[in-house]
Design a protein around this nucleic acid. Sequence first.
DNA 1: AGGTTTTTTTGATAAAGATCAAAAAATTGT
DNA 2: ACAATTTTTTGATCTTTATCAAAAAAACCT
Lengths: 255, 255
Amino acid sequence: MGALGFAPSGATHRAREPSMDFSELKSVCCGCTIRELCLPAGLTDQEVLLLDQHMSHRQPVKKGESLYRTGDTFKSLYAVSTGFFKTSILHEDGRAQVTGFQMAGEILGLDAISADRHVCDAVALEDSVVCEVPFDRFEELGQLMTNLQRRFNRTLSREIVRDQGVMLLLGSMRSEERLAAFLVNLAKRFSARKQSSSELVLRMTREDIGSYLGLKLETVSRLLSRFHDEGLLAVRGRNIQILNADGLNRLVGAA
Amino acid sequence: MGALGFAPSGATHRAREPSMDFSELKSVCCGCTIRELCLPAGLTDQEVLLLDQHMSHRQPVKKGESLYRTGDTFKSLYAVSTGFFKTSILHEDGRAQVTGFQMAGEILGLDAISADRHVCDAVALEDSVVCEVPFDRFEELGQLMTNLQRRFNRTLSREIVRDQGVMLLLGSMRSEERLAAFLVNLAKRFSARKQSSSELVLRMTREDIGSYLGLKLETVSRLLSRFHDEGLLAVRGRNIQILNADGLNRLVGAA
DNA sequence: AGGTTTTTTTGATAAAGATCAAAAAATTGT
DNA sequence: ACAATTTTTTGATCTTTATCAAAAAAACCT
């Protein structure tokens, strides 16, 4: 489990460079550009160092690979360092429901704490890097660092709030509102990561979006075309440019 | 905030008797019949006593009253002792989405940890009693009692799993599957509380059920009538008897 | 108990989104 | 670079569930 796979690509940013050999690098979090969006958020430098040296461990995941699957025993949480994931739960009869899309700084595996087994699949939608956080050691550290434990409680609670937002979306919104809400949310998260909030490069298929939003892929495609015709978006396959952010926001808020 | 309201009704069970004066009673959790379904689950007697004496505090909530509302500052979690609650989030435009129904042993307020504000309304659907758990003291206790903290992490994670189950329901299931899943889930929870799992007394309106399931109240009513006609249920207003549990389960699992 | 309000049921109709189908576009593997 | 595969778009039609409406039933209030 060292630095596997991934050909060097000549980039210079540490956080964007999957091929570096991190096994020698003690302080992964300390130099991470998205530190404040991730588990170390709000910790002092010393605390981050402690978190870092005792537990973090980087691991590449190639596009299409599963980080974990339903039923796997739970050992670690994973913080997305770079890349993009989707999580989905499966119903007996083969139906799947995408429960979320995770980008840099977001934590995967929180649902597995409950029963020591993963209850969803996490699949990389592009070549990605995650920081592995062995949970038993993390819990020990939480007992030593009040601040870390408190932050972690909030992380868990934030996921509950996010999920309830999805419930609102699925339970009360019409298709166009759902899609608008989805795009606005993506844009906001890109923006928080200093990426363009108007030029979205979608990593997931229309089917993934549809599953997440409780719609069929054809409906998603039609809605994107309509938003395009209405001048809200410029849609070129998975490249989506937001032309009228106010208009989108109005769709989300409106009755 | 001692023993407010609620006329005595002559019952003998402590956990079912809202009018008792609990301010003198030090060990609320210790004698609680649903202790193993609640926060103290898995703690030793000594640990429960510690949790109990330092933090629990009982409080009646009358039918129709709010335990807290969206925007209230977060101070405490609440464990339902007896009774029945619903939680709902509101969209700007007045639309509301019911996010859950809580019964004895279940915890209210977990979503508020995230931002120190409640993000939903919690309303009692019948005269109820809750145990108030001041969260700052609870967090301190978690730092002292590893076991409590670990259990609490699981409680939070379990709520995430529950929410994702609702996403599956709302995103991938048809109306009849949703309603069947809802009834099966209620029955299971009643059963865990030693109440009949075939004679359900619903505490919520058809509209509440509809909101939770992403359906209109008329649809819920029609479905109940259909299940009745098909011999799956006996429906008499809010009294619902499950006549064919296997049939219901088949509806939930089937394609 | 009796009048008022709320909730539930049921019917008729409408609308949103699903399904089926097929071509176009994009991506992938070699 | 090219053939194979996957994804996306668009059209025609069908199904499910929402909407509108009104009566029946239940719950509430004083």
